[in-house]
Simulated scan of single mutants.
Amino acid sequence: MSIEVSSLPGGNRPPGEASDPPRPRSGTSPRTPGLLLGLVLLAGAAALSLTVGTEHIPPGQVWSALLSPTGTEHDAIVRELRLPRTLIGIAVGVALGLGGAVMQTLTRNPLADPGLLGVNAGASAAVVTAIGVLGVTSFTGYLWFALAGAALAAVAVQALGGARHATPVRLALAGTAVNAALFGYVNGLQLCNLNTLDGMRHWSVGTLAGRDADLLLTVTPLLAAGVLLALALARPLGALALGEDHARALGTRVRRTRVLAVLAITLLCGGATALCGPIGFIGLMVPHAARALCGPDPRRLLPCCALYAPVLLLVSDVVGRVVVPPSEIEVGTVTAFLGGLLFIQLVRRRKAAQL
């Protein structure tokens, strides 16, 4: 995001510089095509998730199972397995996509991931403590410990980064330190307790399968609060992306914006991680694709990320179902493979810092 030279006080356009491209007429919105495409892709990904799997079910039977079930085996598969899985995928995708976009805008780092704030590490440390020390075995129990751990880790990163004078570099360094310490604790406790290692493996795999719809209902208020907060921060985050001095000149309260952005990331990514385990790289990949379609302005970028992220997550989940039938590959493994390739490409690009 940049400010036009001619818009600054006393600023004159250098001689010979090309004039600005014409702005869209009032009443038209440059975000509309990107949002419409996202809605179409999301509808298609949801239909694919309901239809494709180890047991192929024709679209007509899927529609009948949703609207007028007759108690057949296909009805049970669609309503009890695939529908909750698809809804959870949409909710988690929205949360991770928004969290990634807010994180990259907040830190002004195109390679930033929500895990940079210690969300995944905090959730993992809390879950491994619940399993190894307190003997918790249910996904419902994991849920609340993961949420608490994610929140505490985010608060610790914010405190270490300087709550009053936090900068993108200090936040990144604090997040790296907290991640290293917490993952060291997780690995140590797992090695000392084999039961903890087995229990942790079921949660940390990063999957949409086997998650009950009741868990989604429990997490939905937190995710909804995070979505609303992230969208409400779109304008001040856009100003903050210009730099703190420009943001203050535009009337943005920098400290409050940073704290609320960290809170939004914690609610979004903490809730998603608690629900499905750590699913990496969604928050890294989607904002880059969305910028190509919607531009860098957070007012357009955030809604686009909320649409494209669940598309990527659902398609990755479908790929994991069919690539090695009759077994499945967890969606976290698929996104890690795709994200690793993208991450290498971004690092190799000389102009990655300008994205």
Rank of each mutant, 00 (worst) to 15 (best):
G11L: 13
L36K: 08
L275K: 07
V94S: 09
T72E: 08
I131C: 07
P22E: 09
L314K: 04
A18P: 09
Q345E: 14
V311G: 02
A18C: 07
L263D: 11
R25T: 09
G44V: 04
V119P: 12
T257R: 09
L35Q: 09
V5Q: 14
I131S: 06
E4P: 13
A125N: 02
L189V: 01
V62W: 00
G270R: 14
P221S: 04
L111C: 11
L242F: 14
S2P: 03
L191K: 05
L275W: 02
V324W: 04
S124K: 09
N109A: 10
A174N: 00
R23Y: 04
G100S: 09
L346Q: 04
V169G: 10
L312A: 00
L307F: 00
L134M: 15
L233T: 09
G27C: 00
V94N: 08
T51H: 12
L260T: 05
G280M: 02
T176E: 01
G89L: 11
V259P: 09
G71M: 05
A43M: 14
G60C: 05
T107G: 10
L314A: 03
V286N: 02
V40K: 06
S2H: 08
F145P: 08
A290M: 14
D113M: 12
N195K: 00
P69S: 07
R350I: 02
G132S: 07
P221Q: 04
E17P: 06
A180L: 02
M103Y: 07
L231F: 07
G122P: 11
V227Q: 00
W144C: 08
P287D: 00
T72L: 06
S19E: 12
A352S: 13
N120C: 05
L106V: 08
A241F: 14
V133I: 03
L66A: 01
R108P: 14
F281G: 13
A232W: 11
P296S: 15
P84F: 05
A174S: 05
H202M: 06
I265C: 13
V62R: 01
R299L: 07
R253Y: 02
P278I: 08
D317H: 00
V219R: 05
L152T: 15
S26T: 05
I329L: 14
L216P: 04
T51Y: 11
L147M: 15
A101Q: 12
G238D: 12
G243H: 10
A239L: 10
Q190H: 01
R299E: 08
L312F: 01
V5E: 14
N179M: 06
K351S: 15
A213M: 08
G332V: 01
I90F: 06
Q354R: 12
G135A: 10
G243E: 14
G53D: 03
Y308A: 06
L67Y: 00
G100F: 02
V136Q: 14
L8P: 13
A261Q: 10
L263M: 14
A76T: 12
A121Y: 13
N187P: 00
A181Y: 00
G93N: 01
Y185L: 08
A272D: 08
A289N: 05
Q61G: 03
